[in-house]
C-alpha cells in the first residue's frame, strides 16, 4: 500500500537548489521509490536534477508518493524534512 501526501510550498525560495538537495538526501536514505508530482509531471525524488527541473515555486501544490518496504518511514522523513526547513505545510 503506497503512501501519498500533498504539500503546499510556503518557503519564499520555493524548492530551489539547496532545499531540493535536502529533500533528495532525505529520500535517498530509503529503499522505497519516492516520487514528487507537480503539474502532472512526476520525478524521482532521489534524483536532484529531476527535482530541480520542475521549478516548484512558493505557493505551489505538490504530491509526494512513497512505495516500498520502508514507505512509511520514508514519508515520515520527508514530512520532517519539509517542516524543519520551513518548506511546506
Amino acid at each position: 500500500m503506497a503512501q501519498s501526501k500533498d504539500f503546499h510550498i510556503i518557503a519564499e525560495t520555493g524548492i530551489h537548489a539547496r532545499p531540493a538537495t535536502l529533500l533528495v538526501q532525505a529520500a535517498s536514505k530509503f529503499v522505497s521509490d519516492v516520487t514528487l508530482s507537480y503539474q502532472g509531471k512526476d520525478v524521482n525524488l532521489k534524483s536532484i536534477m529531476g527535482v530541480m527541473s520542475l521549478g516548484v515555486g512558493q505557493g505551489s501544490d505538490v504530491t509526494i508518493k512513497t512505495e516500498g518496504e520502508d514507505e512509511e518511514a520514508a514519508m515520515t522523513a520527508i514530512v520532517e524534512a519539509m517542516s524543519s526547513e520551513g518548506l511546506a505545510k
Binding site: H16, A17, Q39, G57, G59
Partner: peptide
C-alpha cells in the same frame, strides 16, 4: 533558470 521556471509557473 530555476527561478525563471518558477516565475513562469506562478
Amino acid at each position: 533558470r530555476m527561478t525563471e521556471e518558477m516565475e513562469k509557473n506562478a
